[in-house]
Design a protein around this nucleic acid. Structure first.
Length: 285
DNA sequence: CGCCAGGATTCGC
DNA sequence: GCGAATCATGGC
């Protein structure tokens, strides 16, 4: 059990080996900004959240009550035993290579609609520009918080209300119509939150009904916002990493890939994120 | 400048 | 069901 206390508007978690930098920069989230080496900030829901770490203690604010604490516990996936996952990886000759580069990553439980739109934007795009485009989208259609430079992520309706020209100006490129169409589908009642309770394959198929959502983007949404930890997103980095790490550089068949993912078990998606970050850190080719 | 990016869609077979 | 062309655009 994690040790935690709420004090003076902050939540303190003790004996926590999360690596904040890796967690916020491993390609699962696009809006966290670093204030310093150990302090990061992001808008979550309607408020500006700040997280810092000193030794093995992380501080999260604002936190006023048990409801806030429960939100952060879920968001940062604090109840999961990541040590067990990392120990499993260390026991595997191939996976152990990722640990020095990726130890301390947590899979965040992000807001599904934000994750959906963010990963539609991610298609055939680079992480720097994805972040910038999302920031533009928030400034254009989100709500400004006080007189700060922070904005909430837009509601489905406020994105649906944007014109294609607006979305192009923001920098979404050819994904503009996908974003608008998908936002409209959500407004019309697409059961995004309910995908959490469906089995993985059914939830993935349902997501892929949305414009701009193919298999890889669906896996990202399932893994980063809907609790499907077996989802295993395969982008260009992961393809290179899997080829290099598990198949000695040879091309992989679909069946071989499925067998590999299956062998990684219920936490395959979490392991995937460690591999992904490793691949990017070493600049795998 | 040319190539790349957490790919999806569309089309032809 | 599978390969190839196409898509918009900043980063490097």
């Amino acid at each position: 059990m994690m040790k935690a206390t709420i004090e003076k508007g902050s939540l303190y978690i003790f004996d926590c080996d999360i690596d904040l930098y890796r967690t916020f920069n491993c390609g699962q989230a696009f809006r966290w900004k670093s204030v310093s080496d150990s302090v990061f900030t992001c808008v979550l829901g309607e408020r500006i959240v700040t997280v810092s770490k000193e030794a093995d203690c992380i501080a999260i604010s604002p936190c006023e009550n048990e409801i806030d604490k429960a939100f952060y516990t879920h968001y940062f996936d604090l109840e999961r035993d990541y040590t067990a996952i990392e120990d499993y990886m260390l026991s595997n000759t191939v996976l152990s290579r990722c640990i020095p580069y990726a130890k301390g990553i947590r899979i965040l439980n992000q807001a599904p609609f934000e994750t959906l739109i963010s990963f539609i934007i991610s298609a055939n795009n680079n992480i720097k520009r994805i972040s910038k485009t999302i920031d533009n989208l928030c400034a254009a259609a989100g709500r400004r918080i006080g007189d700060t430079n922070h904005y909430t992520f837009p509601t489905p309706q406020s994105i649906a209300d944007l014109s294609i020209e607006d979305l192009l100006k923001i920098g979404t490129g050819y994904r503009a119509s996908y974003i608008k169409d998908t936002a409209i589908r959500i407004c019309e009642g697409f059961p995004l939150e309910e995908l959490r309770d469906l089995d993985y394959c059914t939830a993935k198929s349902k997501l892929m009904e949305l414009k701009g959502v193919g298999g890889k983007v669906a896996d990202c949404i399932l893994l980063f916002s809907l609790g499907h930890y077996n989802a295993f997103p395969m982008d260009v980095w992961m393809k290179r990493a899997v080829n290099a790490l598990f198949f000695n550089g040879k091309q992989v068949s679909r069946d071989e890939l499925c067998a590999l993912i299956e062998s990684l078990g219920a936490n395959a998606g979490i392991i995937q994120q460690y591999i992904f970050h490793y691949a990017r850190q070493i600049g795998i080719k």
